[in-house]
Amino acid sequence: MAGKKIWVTWLPDKENEAELQQTIKDLQMVGLEVSGAPWIDDLEKCAWTELTEMLSGEGCPDLWLVCGRSEDFTNARLTYGLSVSCSFLDFHNPALKMFVQNIEGTELPQLPTLLQGGEVLNNAAGWAAKVVAAAYGAPQATAKTDIHSTIIAHSAIGQWFEVGPAVGEAEWVGAMFGITGEDCEITFQAVGDRGQLPEKAVNEYPSSGIKAEIGDDEFTACALQNKISSEQSYYVKVKGFPQKIMFGGHPGTDQADVTIITLS
């Protein structure tokens, strides 16, 4: 039987070499095939997409381990990149099992929404046994949701958040999408077929620059009134790296409940 494969993403920049080598050794000792690379911090060029394509492509690893220090997991650029990676993988490879480890051995700080789906590991003796047990255990159940959410990104086209009703769910009568954070803005919105950016689109009653206060946050949002079926998506192009995103049905409809995701 072929061994299970794990990919290690190492967040510390050219540091903690001893901890890295020990991590690799511990994983190899329990029979895992270990590969990995340092995290590439280049959000401007969407460098994270190379990792996610590998983690979801043919022959991809069975497991993904993200290792870092407390300061790495509170670094907004790093957690943003990891969050959008998770958004992509949650749709394109939901069977991938993710683990998060603080190599300092202390409790992890509060993680952004999408990173909370990873199993948290300590670095005490025997920690790798939990990883190999997960590798050979039953596939993790995919949480049922009535929302489709992912991201399309490339250095040439920028980043587009893609949301809509999940397969089999009722169509949306319009939609809204908002962001918080500095130096970021919504630059375009459109509705089209799921999984690919529309070449042409007609927006019905579009609006932008909407201010929406939710809790302690003020979101800047856009909206339109197109009907969006479960075979379609609402695409929103965002420049910069928002701390949080918010999306849901058009304001004033009975679908106006919103989902909020913290990205960094």
Rank of each mutant, 00 (worst) to 15 (best):
Leu121Gly: 13
Leu121Ala: 13
Leu121Asp: 14
Leu121Thr: 11
Asn122His: 14
Asn122Lys: 14
Asn123Lys: 15
Asn123Leu: 11
Asn123Thr: 14
Asn123Val: 11
Asn123Asp: 10
Asn123Ser: 12
Asn123Gly: 05
Ala124Leu: 09
Ala124Gln: 15
Ala124His: 13
Ala124Cys: 11
Ala124Met: 15
Ala124Ile: 04
Ala124Val: 04
Ala125Met: 11
Ala125Glu: 12
Gly126His: 14
Gly126Glu: 10
Gly126Arg: 11
Trp127Phe: 10
Trp127Ile: 01
Trp127Asn: 06
Ala128Glu: 14
Ala128Met: 06
Ala128Asp: 08
Ala128Tyr: 05
Ala129Pro: 01
Ala129Val: 13
Ala129Gln: 12
Ala129Tyr: 05
Ala129Leu: 13
Lys130Val: 09
Lys130Ser: 12
Lys130His: 13
Lys130Tyr: 11
Val131Leu: 04
Val131Glu: 06
Val131Cys: 10
Val131Gln: 02
Val132Gly: 06
Val132Lys: 14
Val132Met: 00
Ala133Arg: 12
Ala133Phe: 00
Ala133Leu: 06
Ala133Glu: 15
Ala133Asp: 15
Ala133Thr: 13
Ala133His: 10
Ala134Tyr: 03
Ala134Ile: 01
Ala135Met: 00
Ala135Ile: 00
Ala135Trp: 03
Ala135Val: 00
Tyr136Val: 08
Tyr136Phe: 07
Tyr136Asn: 15
Tyr136Leu: 09
Tyr136Gln: 14
Tyr136Ser: 10
Gly137Asp: 07
Gly137Arg: 01
Gly137His: 00
Gly137Phe: 03
Ala138Thr: 08
Ala138Lys: 07
Pro139Trp: 04
Pro139Val: 00
Gln140Thr: 08
Gln140Tyr: 02
Gln140His: 10
Gln140Trp: 01
Ala141Pro: 01
Ala141Asp: 08
Ala141Met: 06
Ala141Asn: 07
Thr142Phe: 08
Thr142Val: 15
Thr142His: 09
Thr142Gln: 15
Thr142Arg: 12
Ala143Asn: 08
Ala143Gln: 15
Ala143Arg: 14
Ala143Trp: 06
Lys144Ala: 07
Lys144Gln: 05
Thr145Cys: 06
Thr145Met: 01
Thr145Leu: 02
Thr145Ala: 07
Thr145Val: 02
Thr145Gln: 12
Asp146Pro: 00
Asp146Asn: 14
Asp146Gly: 06
Ile147Arg: 13
Ile147Cys: 02
Ile147Gln: 09
Ile147Tyr: 04
Ile147His: 07
His148Phe: 09
His148Glu: 04
His148Met: 02
His148Lys: 07
His148Asn: 08
Ser149Pro: 01
Ser149Trp: 03
Ser149Ala: 07
Ser149Leu: 13
Ser149Glu: 12
Thr150Ile: 02
Thr150Glu: 04
Ile151Val: 12
Ile151Asn: 05
Ile151His: 02
Ile151Tyr: 05
Ile151Gln: 04
Ile151Asp: 06
Ile152Ser: 09
Ile152Tyr: 03
Ile152Ala: 05
Ile152Cys: 11
Ile152Asp: 09
Ile152Met: 10
Ile152Glu: 11
Ala153Glu: 04
Ala153Gly: 02
His154Asp: 13
His154Lys: 08
His154Ala: 11
His154Ile: 00
His154Tyr: 02
His154Phe: 01
His154Val: 03
Ser155Met: 02
Ser155Phe: 10
Ser155Ala: 15
Ala156Met: 03
Ala156Leu: 08
Ala156Asp: 12
Ala156His: 03
Ala156Phe: 01
Ile157Arg: 04
Ile157Asp: 04
Ile157Glu: 09
Ile157His: 08
